[in-house]
Write a protein that binds this DNA or RNA. Structure first.
Lengths: 153, 153
DNA sequence: TTAAAACCTCAAGTTATATTGAGGTCAATA
DNA sequence: TATTGACCTCAATATAACTTGAGGTTTTAA
């Protein structure tokens, strides 16, 4: 009955429990750990143990991914959380503010594309590299690709 | 001087010329061909030749990618173009309308996330699978993941 | 005519984000 | 205590969307 976390003292969580509660697979938690997105320590038998706030961390990771933020970026942003103490509501709120700004940028970017796409595909400019749709100048104010990948279903 | 397309009759384009004009690599054109996103025929020496409208096709592919549409989806949508004749402006415009609707959905989805993200990360619900941010019910009206990947820079 | 530039195929490599499986250990319970 | 479920590591596989490289051919141009 690992889902019940019976007989574990001090609210330290097993990997199976965290997986079930956060809705990700055990292998994903292992993976996140190798990527330094989450931390654990080991018990005597070399099994992972987690502090309860790992649940929120995983939830925040998933939320950020839904916003289109890469794991690398998430890692960097999570690094701004306090290391010495359990993050407070205020700490988490600061994170969300940060991502909200990114999200606003992305939305604005998508809207700019939307506003141009009909005229642009309809006209001749798309056959040229000068087309504003994929002109790098308009890419979220950075030299990066600004690439977006979504499943359509 | 392949960029000049000298001595090729009937406006049939070489792969190097298409690459240069469309801003993608030759290898990408090969790749798109294996994915059936573009077509070519061969000359006597087994080299690819293209009709000029391939330039617009490639441009549209790139524009659609910038909108977050996968190559698989792009392929499906491009399949709606006429096979027997060169697509007209109207044909291309119909495509863009289709993608515009998808883009509107995505924007709305991002906005819903944005409106929730602060309250949601700040509160306790994010540690639970019931969090509306990554609740599947809200994912663009499909069972698909709706995953988004963007570079942040 | 011959050298360079462009082209060809096919296999392997790349990055991000995981998942799967093999082979073995640890812990909870009947 | 013995079984079973949970856990461990490490390597391989998966997908999308390409890129790179090796080894060989065709085309262009001096």
């Amino acid at each position: 009955m690992f889902a019940e976390q019976k007989k574990l003292i001090d609210a330290t969580l097993t990997v199976g429990y965290v997986a079930k509660r956060s809705g990700v697979k055990v292998s994903t938690l292992h993976f996140y750990e190798t990527k330094q997105l989450i931390k654990s320590w080991r018990n005597n038998g070399n099994q992972r143990r987690y502090k309860p706030d790992v649940l929120r961390r995983v939830a925040v990771i998933k939320a950020a991914q839904a916003m289109g933020i890469t794991l690398d970026d998430i890692k960097n942003t999570l690094a701004s959380l306090p290391d010495n103490r359990t993050p407070t509501k205020k700490d988490w709120s600061a994170l969300s503010k940060r991502w909200q700004a990114q999200l606003d940028e992305r939305i604005a970017y998508m809207q700019r594309i939307r506003d141009r796409v009909d005229g642009c595909i309809g006209c001749g400019c798309l056959s040229l590299k000068s087309c504003p749709i994929y002109n790098k100048d308009d890419h979220l104010g950075s030299e990066q690709s600004g690439a977006v990948l979504l499943n359509t279903g």
